[in-house]
Design a protein around this nucleic acid. Sequence first.
DNA 1: AACAGTCTTGCAAATGTTTTCATTTTCTTA
DNA 2: TAAGAAAATGAAAACATTTGCAAGACTGTT
Lengths: 343, 343
Amino acid sequence: MIKPDIVFVANLAGVSPATVSRVMNHPELVHPETRRKVELAVEKSGYIRNRAAQAMHGRRSATIGLVVPTVANTIFAEVVQSFNDTVSKEGFTLLLASHGYDLDREYRLIRKLLEHRVDALAVVGLDHSPGTFRLISGQRVPLLAIWNYLPDSPLPCVGVDNCEAGRLAAEHLVALGHRRIGMVFPATSNNDRARDRKKAATAAFIAAGIELPQRWQITSPYSIAQAKAACLELLEGKDRPSALLCANDVIAQGAIYAAARLGIAVPGSLSVIGIGDFAGSAQMEPALTTVRIPAQRIGTAAGEEIVAAVSRCDPDRMIRRRVELELIMRTSTGLAPELIAAG
Amino acid sequence: MIKPDIVFVANLAGVSPATVSRVMNHPELVHPETRRKVELAVEKSGYIRNRAAQAMHGRRSATIGLVVPTVANTIFAEVVQSFNDTVSKEGFTLLLASHGYDLDREYRLIRKLLEHRVDALAVVGLDHSPGTFRLISGQRVPLLAIWNYLPDSPLPCVGVDNCEAGRLAAEHLVALGHRRIGMVFPATSNNDRARDRKKAATAAFIAAGIELPQRWQITSPYSIAQAKAACLELLEGKDRPSALLCANDVIAQGAIYAAARLGIAVPGSLSVIGIGDFAGSAQMEPALTTVRIPAQRIGTAAGEEIVAAVSRCDPDRMIRRRVELELIMRTSTGLAPELIAAG
DNA sequence: AACAGTCTTGCAAATGTTTTCATTTTCTTA
DNA sequence: TAAGAAAATGAAAACATTTGCAAGACTGTT
């Protein structure tokens, strides 16, 4: 009942451990017949090779670390899924960690992943604690930031340009003639994605000569419930905006539900635009206008890049890959009421 | 610029490697002053201990394997999140694998996780390939099935009784006086959860003397888009049911959007009930009536059980923990139209 | 001052692989 | 068939750690 190790298998097959090892790692180096014998012995003994021992030998651990803020919001689940699919296809297994938007916790998690000697590391976004940067630069592990793209990012990155996302959303509302505009964003201190979107959107509105009264700028975390509550408060009064630019689709969904609850017609009296195009956004009634972030494409692209970085052993090559955004016009946005009234 | 190992640190601190090891694993065994010296040396050299070497020594790898069908559907993301939080708090890191409802792929993934010598393994549901069962029983790794509870499950499990879920949903519709009832379920061949729900719901309807015409039993995967499409087809005709029992909230959401699109009043002319109570279900308009599956509680409970199983080294103790369901009445269900007409 | 007991620490063996190098076997070709 | 090349295999060192054992350094007690 002992756990079979490589020498047990070797004895069973009547060969040396070295040969067994070769069968598993470089099968082309061993004679087909010997190979068959070994494979039989592996089968019969139920041998499962020990990656830990393999990793110890300086070889690859065949794991890739992925650190995300959370996986509970649809936001990242899709990226995680396609990233996992991609690296898994190449024989890697995912070590997942989530920090709940807490950068100190992120530091500790990354440390733990390094203890496990991951072959590469992917993190979300470009905002990280100085400790994290120091830690990584000391190691020679390829690091990739996903979700964001910045032309001058301090890290290799695969993702979208969040400035562009904010700009596209804002310009769409402007093009529809809206001038009384509200924005719903989460706190942006630890979140470069939300920050970039908001900054760019604000800039676009200013450029169009639109003022953004403080009372229409509200804050809500990425939660449908809290976003709905926040929007209910904003929309209740007489003095409300004609359009809402939301930091992402989760918030936009909350906004639409809030409008539905108050009997405000969307897009008749209120236009709502989100960012993301999450699963379900297209099916809502009204269907959500949004700036599509192709999560799947990002996950896949990131997976490809990271696998490539592991095989070429040159951790320092800088890669920046930008994934395209797309404005998806659906039925939650429409012409500004003022324009309609004017005929 | 060499990577510091334990002997490098030992030299730096002027002690033996054994002592450094003890500082990391049994700090109470070493003199406080020596400990300080070692910790200083660790700090200064940027040493990161090698879990692979540790695992090789037969010690714990400090990883737990989790295998899910997918993480992209909100369905499992929440469980993954709270499971991860719980085991992470105890110092474990999660090795995540997803198989996309393919049991052969599940087998291969579990194999890979065993290669990494996970300290324990969690899988979703009780449906697995014979190979998987054989594989596991050969190892001495604690295995836990999460999401499902069955009093006579072949595996230790933490979750809810899906039969009860189906029954609760069905009885609610019956209590509201519905007799023309449709059901929307995914294919149930590889999915014991959906199968149990459907079987129990069907039984409850039969018990109430309700017939279930074949044309109102439709199939759709767990996708809002596809569920909406399927329901559009079902609801378009004149001859439609007065209530829809959906396999989960994702499908129910699709059903409600379909009704909205067709201008069918919910719950006036059509009641819709889901199972799950996912994030957002409570905020929808109309708010979704559902049987709440406390994903977070399941994930946490599963995490606790698996950590316990790892520390007590008795892989064979059978644990079954049942998490309670709750019918949440919201506004997507109402009295059957026939009853209303009758006054 | 000697003794027993308790703390600390170091030595060295053990863990399960991979890989280099050397050796043996097999295959080509003259 | 012999020599040289190519292919297949094995021996052993190496990888980074943990831990049982034993020895050395203290403590307090007579």
